[in-house]
């Protein structure tokens, strides 16, 4: 038996919104330590990894490890039926091919029950090496989203350059070019407004903005975002999911032909 009850159900709605544009089908892995998911987009350019720890749920039970094959479009449709203030409970029997979703309004006067068919998925799991990165940039998530949106009007690629002075995002295209530079700003009153840069070596990498824009669907989950980069390896874009986990997006860089 698997059962997970999340009082702040809106978190699950936001997580789903942050995943659905990148992956069409994914295996949600349930173990006694929590829920996790790892999936690549169809073109093998980006990968998303979600962790929601068991202790972040008000109730969590998982007697046997389960891999629930979920059509992300169906999951989105059903989670849209939950109100933002609803408590969400997920339930599945060990051998069932269905996931039950229950939405309770805060005062308990409305209870909705949905059942979603699960799929048999044969998912490749990738081993992501633990690695130290040359640059880690923490910045307000809305600023990152704004930069990606703005520069996507200029060109299809963004060059991210990180030095000890700051991080620069540049794009160029047929109509011209654009550059946005963010400098370290430790004096901001709110922690989420701070820009911090930890660097051991300068980094410059080029990425397809299209994917970065998809990652920014996670913006509402967290006030800040962390970009981790080293030369010649995939970028990591990480959003915390409150104190219960994270969504990490990996994106392969573009390379000179």
């Amino acid at each position: 038996m698997f059962e997970a009850r999340l009082v702040q159900g809106s978190l699950l709605k936001k997580v789903q919104e942050a995943l659905k544009d990148i992956v069409q089908e994914a295996s949600w892995d349930c173990t006694s330590s929590g829920l996790s998911l790892q999936a690549m987009d169809g073109s093998h350019v980006s990968l998303v990894q979600l962790t929601l720890r068991a202790d972040g749920f008000e109730k969590y039970r998982c007697d046997r490890n389960l891999a629930m094959g979920i059509n992300m479009g169906s999951m989105s449709k059903i989670l849209k039926c939950a109100g933002n203030d609803d408590v969400i409970t997920l339930k599945a029997e060990d051998t069932s091919d269905r996931l039950e979703l229950m939405f309770e309004s805060p005062k308990g006067e409305k209870i909705s029950n949905y059942e979603m068919k699960l799929m048999d998925l044969d998912c490749e799991q990738l081993g992501i090496p633990d690695q130290e990165y040359s640059c880690s940039i923490k910045m307000p998530s809305h600023e990152f989203a704004r930069i990606c949106r703005d520069l996507s009007q200029i060109g299809e690629c963004v060059v991210i350059t990180c030095t000890k002075d700051g991080v620069q995002f540049s794009a160029k295209g047929d109509m011209g070019s654009g550059t946005v530079k963010m400098s370290q700003n430790l004096g901001a009153e709110k922690e989420d407004d701070q820009v911090t840069i930890e660097m051991t070596e300068p980094v410059q990498l080029t990425f397809a903005i299209k994917y970065l824009n998809m990652f920014t669907k996670a913006t509402s989950l967290s006030g800040s975002v962390c970009l981790s980069m080293s030369n010649d390896v995939p970028l990591v874009v990480e959003y915390k999911v409150e104190d219960m986990g994270h969504i990490k997006y990996f994106l392969a860089p573009k390379i000179e032909d």
Binding site: H44, L126, G127, P234, A252, I255
Partner: peptide, 14 residues
């Protein structure tokens, strides 16, 4: 023109 690299060049299938 830079070419899009593949994630499978970095991560092993486990």
């Amino acid at each position: 023109v830079p070419k899009q690299n593949d994630l499978l060049n970095y991560f092993q299938v486990s």
